[in-house]
Design a protein around this nucleic acid. Structure first.
Lengths: 194, 194
DNA sequence: GGGCCGATGTCATCGTGTGACATCACCGTA
DNA sequence: TACGGTGATGTCACACGATGACATCGGCCC
């Protein structure tokens, strides 16, 4: 038999996406995925840390592109993060909306996968915060600016993926960022002092 | 054998905390935990959804108290969430700092547990956002105010738990909230150094 | 006492994830 | 062409997480 089929990784990802979409995440075993890709269960675990990971391989590229954008942007920390997301967003997701939607539907249907998604987002935030600190931004400011920026991205992304949407991801990010500014801007009562 | 020992739930939680602290989360099996509590593995799974859940049972109380505080507070959305956290925080955590520290050390040492913590926090945010919407706050505003508020809480909580800290959780929340306001306020205001 | 009923224990089973080891294809080299 | 090395893959065995099915114990009500 054809040992050494090309692009084992990509075939496993495609097989997993298809099976998850057909039967659901829980109802699909790793052996099923491997079988559809013409491979063995053990090979799956050599390429992916666990069953969930097969859906999140793209995240690393987003991370590196984002870090680069943060390093090259010159603005206040929060604006920097938001701008970086805007620059990067369309480049990565724009031409794959249908695929992204399928993927997101799968994730939204499984608490296990949502857990992993949160972890990935959290890791992304940590990396971006590190990139900010590397530019001389203080610890706390870096963390808060990044968390806020990631929140904006998450909300905007959810809107973008939602059925019926036709706005660009970049525009939605800008819009959401403005709304977050409005929400957190000081009201009548100034914050209590330390 | 003494079937029907009292407070099976509490004993399992205590046993789990002790074992996780001694050997680590991965090195402890559910059978180990049940054995130390004088119970069976199956009983553990009847009381807790899975192995991780045994560390997160307290979250539900925080959730309900928080929702109540949100409902009773009258201010703009973000301020409401922050205030609610401040009111509730000490009441729940103040007298258990040592226990909380042990628990947090365990969680910080295990990616699996961090994942679950993120999920719990996320669920909390969703609940709080719903409480805001119940007061007439718009969908997006509720989400953004809540996410920002939870971010403030997370950062403040981390500071509070950190070794050497002696400030109160409520004060740290207020302080962190002020910093977040500063970070996200005006795009034109550049305190380049921090 | 007798019987109901919830909490617990026992048994069997599937799936995840991993270590150890065998096997195959490819490639450079003599 | 034969040879040996190397890396990717397959095979086997196993511990542990998680769950369904069923038995059993203890208290409680009549």
């Amino acid at each position: 038999m054809a040992r050494w089929q090309p692009d084992a990784r990509g075939r496993l990802e495609a097989a997993a996406l298809a099976l998850f979409n057909e039967r659901g995440f829980e109802q699909t075993t790793v052996t099923d995925i491997a079988a559809r890709a013409g491979l063995d269960k053990r090979t799956f675990y050599r390429l992916f840390g666990d069953k969930r990971e097969v859906l999140f391989s793209g995240g690393s590229r987003l991370e590196e592109v984002l870090v680069k954008a943060v390093a090259e942007t010159d603005a206040d920390p929060f604006e920097t993060v938001v701008t970086a997301f805007r620059q990067v967003a369309d480049e990565i997701f724009a031409d794959r909306l249908d695929l992204v939607r399928v993927r997101q539907t799968i994730i939204d249907a499984s608490p296990e996968l949502q857990e992993r998604e949160l972890r990935k987002t959290n890791g992304l935030a940590a990396t971006v915060a590190a990139a900010l600190r590397a530019k001389g931004v203080g610890e706390t400011t870096a963390t808060l600016a990044t968390e806020s920026g990631v929140t904006v991205f998450r909300v905007a992304f959810a809107r973008w993926v939602a059925p019926g949407n036709d706005a660009s991801l970049a525009d939605l990010i800008a819009e959401t960022a403005a709304e977050l500014r409005a929400v957190t801007s000081s009201p009548a009562t100034p914050p209590a002092r330390v």
